[in-house]
């Protein structure tokens, strides 16, 4: 696939039906939810709640990015949570047991996340088995290994600055974790839009065979995408460590699976690969976090929450399917 073709395709995909940006509708829905929650639940806009929402959003955004990186290739990563918790415990071990400086420990944890993701990608590319099967297996493998090595003992004597960073408030309202998530988003946006490797990943995800014939090293970009996914999952893990001020084996895991798909899919990243929506993933995560917080503040969320999130994911998938059919009928190039 030529660069011109990819440019044209990605330009058309950035817009949804009728030339309106795909994320515009999502932004309107989010604004409507904020208006309703602010009206019906006075505590929703309290500084405490806004800070809490922002901090939870930061982690959800990066978890969404981790899944988005795998979706870009037309695959998926079911081991996002397992890689996250492995990074959490590794970071904690390096900081607490080996007493390494915090930046070194973070670097080590992120490195492990990237390595575990790379392993996923390597096996997928070499074996030709679907990402679903490989990452389902590796999710259990990584979690099991983590439990064996750590004996499920949490590490709660991390350096004070780790927990302090998670509690820090910029201008009394904004968590620095949210700033990190936005910065990661910016880097990903530039990567997918302006780098050769980013465009090769999208090309391989859109049509692996065509990409291969155009000279794209498909196996390599799949491996790199999964390494990126692992790196982002580890980043989310380290953000959780900062939030909790401790490294716990109970975080991540299956709990991250639903939010990892909700953000990118709601934001317009197709499950079939070939395109990513960085800003959309952030908006998707914002919608989910907004609904979760709003329903809780309205005191109707406890048992209904999972149901709402499931319905929203189902609707997003159906919309994604409709969008694909619409593009097919209108002759817009498909993946």
């Amino acid at each position: 696939m030529t660069d011109e073709a990819m440019s044209e395709m990605s330009a058309r995909r950035r817009f949804g039906l009728g030339g309106v940006p795909a994320q515009f509708g999502l932004a309107i829905i989010i604004a409507a939810f904020w208006a309703v929650f602010a009206w019906r639940a006075p505590g929703f806009l309290s500084p405490f709640n806004l800070f809490s929402v922002g901090r939870a959003l930061a982690v959800d955004i990066v978890i969404g990015f981790a899944q988005m990186a795998a979706l870009a290739t037309g695959g998926m990563n079911l081991s996002v949570g397992s890689i996250g918790v492995c990074a959490v415990m590794t970071g904690g071990y390096l900081m607490q047991t080996l007493a390494l400086p915090v930046p070194v420990a973070i670097f080590g944890a992120l490195g492990l996340g990237a390595a575990l993701g790379w392993l996923n990608g390597f096996v997928i590319a070499r074996s030709g088995v679907s990402a679903f099967i490989i990452t389902l297996a590796s999710a259990n493998l990584y979690s099991g290994a983590m439990l064996i090595l750590t004996k499920a003992v949490p590490l709660n004597s991390l350096p004070m600055e780790v927990g302090a960073f998670g509690k820090m408030k910029i201008a009394g309202l904004v968590s620095p974790l949210l700033v990190i998530a936005l910065a990661v988003g910016l880097v990903l946006f530039v990567f997918y839009r302006h780098s050769v490797l980013g465009r090769q990943i999208l090309a391989a995800g859109a049509n692996a065979r065509a990409a291969k014939m155009s000279g794209v090293p498909v196996d390599r970009v799949i491996t790199i995408s999964h390494a990126l996914s692992g790196l982002l999952a580890a980043t989310a893990g380290m953000m959780v460590v900062a939030h909790l001020g401790a490294a716990m084996p109970a975080v991540g895991g299956e709990d991250w699976l639903l939010p990892s798909f909700l953000g990118p899919v709601l934001g317009g990243t197709p499950l079939s690969g070939g395109a990513v929506a960085v800003a959309g993933t952030m908006l998707g995560a914002l919608l989910v976090t907004t609904i979760r917080s709003g329903l809780l503040v309205l005191q109707i969320g406890n048992y209904w929450l999972q149901l709402y999130l499931g319905v929203i994911l189902l609707l997003a998938v159906l919309v994604d399917r409709y969008r694909a059919l619409y593009q097919e009928r209108r002759g817009i190039p498909m993946r």
Binding site: A41, A56, P154, L244, G245, A246, V297
Partner: peptide, 26 residues
Amino acid sequence: ELIESLVAQGYKGFGIFPGDAVGINS
């Protein structure tokens, strides 16, 4: 998340069975 939402609603005291003995501390 439930605790945070209750703080937003003006609750002034919490009796909590820790979901995690370490993780609840933050």
